[in-house]
């Protein structure tokens, strides 16, 4: 009250927005409201403007360590649905929806494909996979000789690149992940089932009557 910033940064989403998001995702209205508590905490960690910046996203993933990281950047870019350089609440809910245990396998496969298609070419290409492998080795302080990395890439592309054109298309990716379901483990966050228990304070800010 009395603060001209309070509307955008702090106000709970309008009832109809919450209801729409719940209708179009796997979340209930209460869960969308609980997600708003999480969103509010992340989006106010650096600047309390009701939007998640890349810096705030990285802080949330890596806690206190400031880290510029290929994978975190990629996830941020995919969450930034409207390509505004920030994540708004709607982007946040719709993106997390793919990670819901009840989200469809097709959505999880499609999102994971886009995650690895670093340059948005519509294909997962060998240089992209090599770039990600090198980033992973750097991040985890693991060292592998270049010929070992090439061997891993050879093996992966023999298995995944069925028409052997040097890149993995969406159909090849679908076949590959169905044969290797563990690859989709990162696409499900069991935590999302219990979001209202984790952020019970949503009850005090709720716009809906029947919780």
């Amino acid at each position: 009250m009395g603060c001209f910033h309070s509307k955008s940064a702090r106000q709970f989403p309008a009832q109809e927005n919450t209801a729409n998001l719940a209708a179009e995702t796997a979340f209930t209205v209460s869960e969308v409201e609980a997600l708003f508590e999480l969103f509010r905490s992340i989006s106010s960690s650096v600047v309390d403007d009701g939007l998640i910046s890349k810096e705030e996203f990285q802080l949330a993933i890596f806690k206190n360590k400031k880290k510029d990281n290929l994978f975190a950047n990629r996830i941020f870019d995919l969450f930034d649905v409207k390509k505004k350089g920030v994540i708004d609440f709607e982007d946040f809910v719709r993106s997390l929806n793919v990670f819901h245990p009840n989200a469809s396998l097709e959505d999880k496969i499609a999102f994971s494909f886009r995650l690895y298609d670093l340059h948005n070419t519509g294909f997962i290409e060998r240089p992209e996979v090599k770039q990600m492998l090198i980033a992973l080795l750097f991040e985890s302080d693991m060292k592998l000789a270049d010929d070992v990395i090439e061997t891993i890439l050879d093996k992966t592309f023999v298995e995944a690149d069925l028409n052997q054109d040097g890149k993995i298309d969406t159909e090849e990716w679908e076949t590959f992940v169905k044969k290797n379901p563990s690859l989709l483990k990162i696409m499900t966050l069991p935590y999302l089932r219990d979001i209202t228990t984790s952020f019970p304070s949503f009850i005090f800010n709720s716009n809906v009557d029947e919780i």
Binding site: M132, L136, I152
Partner: peptide, 25 residues
């Protein structure tokens, strides 16, 4: 052993993909 895994098995082990961190207060 890393060599016995495919590239995506390795990449998906990146800590940065662990979005559960988002929920830790």
């Amino acid at each position: 052993k890393p060599v016995s895994m495919n590239a995506f098995e390795l990449i998906s082990r990146s800590q940065s993909f662990n979005l559960e961190n988002l929920f830790e207060k």
